[in-house]
Protein backbone atom coordinates (compact mmCIF):
# COMPACT_ATOMS: atom_id res chain seq x y z
CA UNK A 1 0.00 0.00 0.00
CA UNK A 2 1.71 3.10 -1.27
CA UNK A 3 0.44 5.43 1.42
CA UNK A 4 2.27 3.40 4.01
CA UNK A 5 5.65 4.12 2.55
CA UNK A 6 6.88 7.16 4.33
CA UNK A 7 9.73 9.32 3.05
CA UNK A 8 11.52 11.28 5.70
CA UNK A 9 11.01 14.66 4.02
CA UNK A 10 9.46 17.33 6.18
CA UNK A 11 7.22 19.87 4.52
CA UNK A 12 7.38 23.63 5.09
CA UNK A 13 4.87 25.34 7.36
CA UNK A 14 2.83 26.73 4.48
CA UNK A 15 2.38 23.29 2.91
CA UNK A 16 1.55 21.79 6.26
CA UNK A 17 -1.15 24.37 6.87
CA UNK A 18 -2.55 23.89 3.42
CA UNK A 19 -2.82 20.15 3.89
CA UNK A 20 -4.43 20.60 7.27
CA UNK A 21 -7.00 22.96 5.77
CA UNK A 22 -7.64 20.52 2.94
CA UNK A 23 -8.30 17.66 5.38
CA UNK A 24 -10.61 19.84 7.47
CA UNK A 25 -12.45 21.06 4.39
CA UNK A 26 -13.08 17.47 3.27
CA UNK A 27 -14.77 16.38 6.49
CA UNK A 28 -16.71 19.63 6.88
CA UNK A 29 -18.22 19.28 3.40
CA UNK A 30 -19.22 15.69 4.11
CA UNK A 31 -20.62 16.55 7.53
CA UNK A 32 -22.60 19.43 6.05
CA UNK A 33 -24.24 17.04 3.61
CA UNK A 34 -22.48 18.43 0.53
CA UNK A 35 -22.02 14.95 -0.87
CA UNK A 36 -21.83 16.19 -4.47
CA UNK A 37 -18.58 17.94 -3.62
CA UNK A 38 -16.97 14.75 -2.37
CA UNK A 39 -15.46 13.53 -5.65
CA UNK A 40 -13.90 16.96 -6.25
CA UNK A 41 -11.37 16.20 -3.52
CA UNK A 42 -9.86 13.42 -5.64
CA UNK A 43 -7.77 13.15 -8.78
CA UNK A 44 -9.48 11.51 -11.76
CA UNK A 45 -7.68 8.20 -11.19
CA UNK A 46 -7.73 8.28 -7.40
CA UNK A 47 -8.25 5.24 -5.21
CA UNK A 48 -10.68 5.56 -2.31
CA UNK A 49 -11.01 2.65 0.03
CA UNK A 50 -12.69 1.95 3.33
CA UNK A 51 -11.36 -1.15 4.99
CA UNK A 52 -10.63 -2.53 8.43
CA UNK A 53 -7.41 -2.77 10.34
CA UNK A 54 -7.74 -6.56 10.18
CA UNK A 55 -7.92 -6.57 6.36
CA UNK A 56 -5.22 -3.93 6.02
CA UNK A 57 -2.78 -5.80 8.21
CA UNK A 58 -3.51 -9.13 6.52
CA UNK A 59 -3.05 -7.51 3.11
CA UNK A 60 -6.56 -8.54 2.01
CA UNK A 61 -7.71 -6.57 -1.04
CA UNK A 62 -11.42 -6.53 -0.20
CA UNK A 63 -12.50 -4.20 2.55
CA UNK A 64 -15.83 -2.43 2.84
CA UNK A 65 -15.82 0.05 -0.05
CA UNK A 66 -13.41 0.49 -2.95
CA UNK A 67 -13.55 3.08 -5.71
CA UNK A 68 -11.02 2.97 -8.52
CA UNK A 69 -11.28 6.41 -10.09
CA UNK A 70 -13.73 9.24 -9.76
CA UNK A 71 -16.33 7.49 -11.94
CA UNK A 72 -16.88 4.85 -9.31
CA UNK A 73 -17.13 7.52 -6.65
CA UNK A 74 -19.79 9.30 -8.70
CA UNK A 75 -21.69 6.02 -8.97
CA UNK A 76 -21.56 5.70 -5.19
CA UNK A 77 -22.96 9.20 -4.76
CA UNK A 78 -25.73 8.61 -7.28
CA UNK A 79 -26.54 5.25 -5.70
CA UNK A 80 -26.84 6.65 -2.21
CA UNK A 81 -28.99 9.51 -3.46
CA UNK A 82 -31.32 7.49 -5.67
CA UNK A 83 -31.02 3.73 -5.17
CA UNK A 84 -29.96 2.84 -1.66
CA UNK A 85 -32.50 2.61 1.13
CA UNK A 86 -31.48 3.49 4.69
CA UNK A 87 -32.64 5.42 7.71
CA UNK A 88 -31.64 9.10 7.44
CA UNK A 89 -28.57 10.02 9.46
CA UNK A 90 -25.70 12.50 9.54
CA UNK A 91 -22.02 12.19 10.37
CA UNK A 92 -19.69 14.40 12.36
CA UNK A 93 -15.96 13.79 11.84
CA UNK A 94 -13.30 14.74 14.37
CA UNK A 95 -9.83 14.59 12.80
CA UNK A 96 -6.62 14.55 14.84
CA UNK A 97 -3.41 16.39 14.06
CA UNK A 98 -1.99 15.08 10.78
CA UNK A 99 1.45 13.67 10.18
CA UNK A 100 2.60 15.21 6.86
CA UNK A 101 5.59 13.92 4.90
CA UNK A 102 7.01 14.98 1.54
CA UNK A 103 7.75 12.03 -0.74
CA UNK A 104 10.58 11.94 -3.29
CA UNK A 105 8.09 11.79 -6.18
CA UNK A 106 6.58 15.12 -5.13
CA UNK A 107 3.46 13.70 -3.56
CA UNK A 108 2.66 14.13 0.10
CA UNK A 109 1.90 11.26 2.44
CA UNK A 110 -0.45 12.08 5.29
CA UNK A 111 -1.68 10.06 8.22
CA UNK A 112 -4.36 11.27 10.58
CA UNK A 113 -6.70 9.70 13.10
CA UNK A 114 -10.42 10.26 13.00
CA UNK A 115 -13.62 9.54 14.83
CA UNK A 116 -17.07 9.74 13.29
CA UNK A 117 -20.21 10.29 15.33
CA UNK A 118 -23.53 9.36 13.76
CA UNK A 119 -26.81 11.06 14.52
CA UNK A 120 -29.96 9.20 13.55
CA UNK A 121 -33.32 10.63 12.58
CA UNK A 122 -34.52 9.57 16.04
CA UNK A 123 -32.12 12.05 17.62
CA UNK A 124 -29.83 9.36 18.91
CA UNK A 125 -26.13 10.24 18.61
CA UNK A 126 -23.34 7.74 19.03
CA UNK A 127 -19.83 6.84 18.01
CA UNK A 128 -19.98 5.19 14.58
CA UNK A 129 -16.37 4.67 13.57
CA UNK A 130 -12.81 5.36 14.60
CA UNK A 131 -9.62 4.73 12.71
CA UNK A 132 -6.99 6.38 10.59
CA UNK A 133 -6.71 7.99 7.20
CA UNK A 134 -3.69 7.06 5.10
CA UNK A 135 -3.51 9.56 2.26
CA UNK A 136 -1.41 10.36 -0.76
CA UNK A 137 -1.97 13.94 -1.82
CA UNK A 138 -0.78 15.60 -5.02
CA UNK A 139 -1.04 19.18 -6.26
CA UNK A 140 -3.28 19.69 -9.26
CA UNK A 141 -3.38 23.23 -10.60
CA UNK A 142 -2.10 24.44 -7.26
CA UNK A 143 -4.88 22.56 -5.43
CA UNK A 144 -4.27 19.58 -3.16
CA UNK A 145 -6.16 16.45 -4.22
CA UNK A 146 -6.25 12.91 -2.92
CA UNK A 147 -4.56 10.46 -5.23
CA UNK A 148 -5.23 7.83 -2.64
CA UNK A 149 -7.32 7.89 0.51
CA UNK A 150 -7.44 4.73 2.56
CA UNK A 151 -9.80 4.78 5.49
CA UNK A 152 -8.73 2.12 7.96
CA UNK A 153 -11.38 1.37 10.56
CA UNK A 154 -10.19 0.05 13.91
CA UNK A 155 -13.15 -2.29 14.23
CA UNK A 156 -14.03 -5.21 11.99
CA UNK A 157 -17.67 -4.50 12.69
CA UNK A 158 -19.85 -1.81 11.12
CA UNK A 159 -22.96 -0.84 13.02
CA UNK A 160 -26.05 -1.34 10.81
CA UNK A 161 -24.58 -0.27 7.45
CA UNK A 162 -22.18 2.10 5.80
CA UNK A 163 -23.46 4.27 2.98
CA UNK A 164 -21.85 7.71 3.25
CA UNK A 165 -18.16 7.99 2.52
CA UNK A 166 -15.94 8.74 5.51
Amino acid sequence: MAAQLRAEGQVDAATWLRIENFLADYVHRLDDGLIDEWTGFFTEDAVYQITTRENFEAGYPIGIMLCNGRGMMEDRVLALKTANVFEPHTHCHIVGRPDVKQRPDGSIAVRSNFSVYRTMESGETGLFAIGKYLDLIVMEGGQPRFKERRVILDSRCVDVLLVYPL
Binding site: T51, T52, E54, N55, Y60, P61, I62, G63, I64, R156, C157, V158, D159, V160, L161
Partner: peptide, 10 residues
Protein backbone atom coordinates in the same frame (compact mmCIF):
# COMPACT_ATOMS: atom_id res chain seq x y z
CA UNK B 1 -9.62 -15.36 1.51
CA UNK B 2 -9.82 -11.89 -0.06
CA UNK B 3 -11.30 -9.95 2.84
CA UNK B 4 -13.44 -10.14 5.96
CA UNK B 5 -15.65 -7.85 7.99
CA UNK B 6 -18.85 -7.88 9.94
CA UNK B 7 -21.96 -5.85 10.51
CA UNK B 8 -24.04 -5.51 13.66
CA UNK B 9 -27.67 -5.63 12.71
CA UNK B 10 -30.31 -4.82 15.28
Amino acid sequence: VLGVHSQMIH
